[in-house]
């Protein structure tokens, strides 16, 4: 009988161990790389915005210097990113553009596409078709930045990532589109862009001049890759 009790206790203990194993009990493999300082944002609020010259989906060339005396709003854009789909599709961005058009100062809205995870023609076609299907009152230029030089000069990290440049060409705001990351408020969300432009028009200081941007990472061209996405030298993620 004593033997049976001992066997019983062993079996019970084994049952407990086997069924209490949580998912992923083994510590994950170390994936962290040695410390690296986060990449510095090149464009700084309060300083002159980096110059650019890019072509849009209609073949027109846009230079930042063309818009001297106007407020310029830049949106980093990728039509395959769910945040871009939502902010455009919900009507938030079309409504923002309408509101910007009602300002006293001329406001120019430019979408910039630095996506290089697929061939350039596909990026151009996909973005252009997306904007076309929205049937916007005002045609939104989508500037192609396939080599990512302009995106990197501005430090664009996400889609969307917004930049507001004043009439003197000075960067006055960069960061999130709004605080409504999930698009729950639809086109009723308040945007930091309209707030910044309104503050500029009222002669006020743009504040806050930075709000952490959210969204998909910008799918920049990888070093040594052409037209395809892939892991970077650090085994990075997309």
């Amino acid at each position: 009988m004593l033997k049976q009790v001992i066997v019983f206790l062993i079996v019970t203990a084994l049952c407990s161990i086997s069924t209490a194993q949580p998912i992923g009990t083994r510590p994950p493999k170390p994936q962290e790389k040695p410390d690296e300082a986060s990449k510095k944002i090149v464009a700084e609020v309060g300083e002159e915005a980096p110059a650019f010259e890019l072509q849009d989906q209609f073949g027109k060339t846009h230079k930042l210097s063309d818009y001297e005396g106007k407020i310029v709003v830049l949106e980093w854009f990728n039509e395959t990113c769910p945040f871009c789909k939502k902010t455009w599709g919900s009507g938030l961005l079309p409504k923002l553009i309408s509101s910007l058009n009602e300002q006293k100062t001329d406001v120019v809205y430019l979408a910039i596409n630095s996506t290089a995870s697929k061939p350039k023609e596909d990026v151009l076609k996909g973005g252009a078709e997306f904007l076309e299907e929205l049937k916007l009152e005002t045609k939104v230029p989508m500037l192609m930045d396939y080599d990512g030089a302009v995106g990197k000069a501005y430090g664009a990290r996400t889609t969307p990532h917004m930049f507001v440049i004043d009439t003197d060409g000075v960067l006055v705001y960069q960061g999130a589109l709004s605080d409504d990351r999930r698009g729950k408020e639809g086109d009723k969300a308040e945007t930091h862009v309209l707030r910044a432009v309104t503050q500029l028009e009222a002669g006020e200081k743009v504040s806050p001049s930075y709000v952490q941007p959210w969204g998909c990472s910008v799918k920049y061209k990888r070093e040594g890759k052409s037209g395809r996405g892939g892991r970077g030298p650090l085994g990075g993620r997309r």
Binding site: I23, K33, E36, G235, R238
Partner: peptide, 17 residues
Amino acid sequence: PTVFHEEEGQTYGYDKP
């Protein structure tokens, strides 16, 4: 969180439960 190293900088999150 785990620190991931991306082209545009570090991100923080979870690739395990």
